[in-house]
């Protein structure tokens, strides 16, 4: 029984973004596993605990030279196998999904594919659904709770305003995780040591037959406009709140 986890590597949330040429300056950036994908890895490991016959394989599409670090993190957390799909930096969501689907088809039929609900770099939330389309299986996104049976999963899907949709999804399926699903484990030291020795299967977009001319291209990168400096409101609390309310109404015109 094959369980897959698809992860993306993104700049650490602490990273300051600087621009360079037609893109961002990647020189000072620390790359980490996308935070939502940690929930996906953990969920696959929890599933395996209850279903020992499951083989958990993690996949990452992107430049092999760096994505290998996040694959090793997943191996250190406890996944069985890792596949690196070497690809250019600027692949778009559709091509990434296509590459993942071809890599999965090559490896073995999926029982479940876990992903994170969104990558925090481009905020597209597209690859999970597109991957499901290419694998011709259903998807469920923004999942904060799961209950498994042999051929289906009951899930909670978080929607607007704190509401939840309760879904029943036939397996195989792609399940995109959000916070609350579980508490991702930290890799243990022995885990990290063992992960260093585990092999990583290497595939490329070329051998998977993926067209790498993106449909979506980013140009004209800009930093957000600087804010004018803050107006501090001084005085006794009663004067401060009266002054603030007045400024919000008369100067900022937001009330």
């Amino acid at each position: 029984m094959n369980v897959y986890v698809c992860i993306k590597q993104v700049p650490d949330t602490e990273s300051k973004i600087k621009l360079s040429g037609n893109g961002i300056d990647t020189s000072g950036i620390k790359w980490v596993m996308n935070p939502y994908d940690e929930f996906a890895v953990e969920e696959a490991l929890l599933f395996k605990k209850d279903n020992p016959s499951a083989v958990v394989t993690v996949l990452c599409v992107g430049p092999k030279s760096r994505t290998v670090d996040s694959l090793r993190t997943a191996l250190a957390m406890g996944v069985d196998n890792a596949i690196s799909v070497d690809a250019p930096e600027n692949l778009d969501s559709l091509q990434t999904a296509h590459a993942l689907s071809e890599a999965i088809k090559k490896t073995g039929d999926a029982h479940i594919v876990f992903t994170g609900k969104v990558a925090i770099d481009d905020n597209q939330s597209a690859v999970s659904q597109q991957l499901a389309n290419f694998l011709e299986i259903p998807h469920a996104t923004v999942i904060s709770k799961t209950a498994y049976t042999a051929d289906s999963i009951a899930v909670d899907r978080e929607v607007e305003g704190g509401s939840k949709e309760i879904l029943n999804v036939k397996l195989p399926a792609v399940i995109a995780a959000t916070k609350g699903l579980n508490n991702p484990r930290y890799a243990s030291l022995p885990g990290i040591m063992k992960a260093k020795k585990k092999p990583i299967t290497e595939l490329t977009t070329t051998e998977l037959g993926i067209n790498t001319d993106p449909y979506v291209e980013f140009t004209d990168f800009q930093l957000p406009p600087e804010r004018p400096s803050v107006k501090m409101i001084e005085g006794e609390v009663d004067t401060q709140v009266a002054e603030l309310a007045k400024l919000l109404r008369e100067e900022a015109k937001v009330l």
Binding site: D122, F218, L223
Partner: peptide
């Protein structure tokens, strides 16, 4: 489109 949670933005072009 804002990227990196609004730390920068870029123009989206379709090709």
């Amino acid at each position: 489109k804002p990227l990196y949670s609004g730390k920068c933005s870029a123009q989206v072009n379709f090709k």
